[in-house]
């Protein structure tokens, strides 16, 4: 696979580390509940098709990227820095 890093260009998979589904949002703050946190930590969808995922360009610019990838074909639809993404792009 190759991922088009917005900073570094088209780079080989070997430069990246995979995290997974980008959609869960951390329930921040002292008011957060244990059950919401449990869902955030453990529960993930495993869809067939488009999924917004987090990848880390560890052998490159160290950017966390939101990669919209088809889990069936590995076609990559979009790559944006995670700190600039609009949440739920794949939904």
């Amino acid at each position: 696979m190759r991922i088009a890093c917005p900073h570094c260009g088209l780079r080989d998979l070997q430069e990246f580390t995979y995290l997974g589904d980008a959609s869960p949002s951390r329930p921040d703050g002292l008011a957060a509940t244990e059950s919401a946190m449990f869902d955030y930590v453990y529960l993930r969808e495993n869809p067939r098709g488009l999924l917004e995922e987090l990848w880390f360009h560890n052998a490159g610019c160290r950017a966390w990227l939101a990669v919209c990838r088809d889990t069936l074909t590995h076609t990559i639809q979009s790559v944006v820095p995670a700190n600039k993404r609009k949440k739920g792009a794949a939904a």
């Binding site: 580390t17 980008a22 951390r26 921040d28 880390f56 560890n58 160290r62 966390w64 700190n83």
Partner: peptide, 14 residues
Amino acid sequence: VMQHLEFCHQVLWP
């Protein structure tokens, strides 16, 4: 840890 901190900053609290 470096990767974790980058995650916390870039993903959780940009």
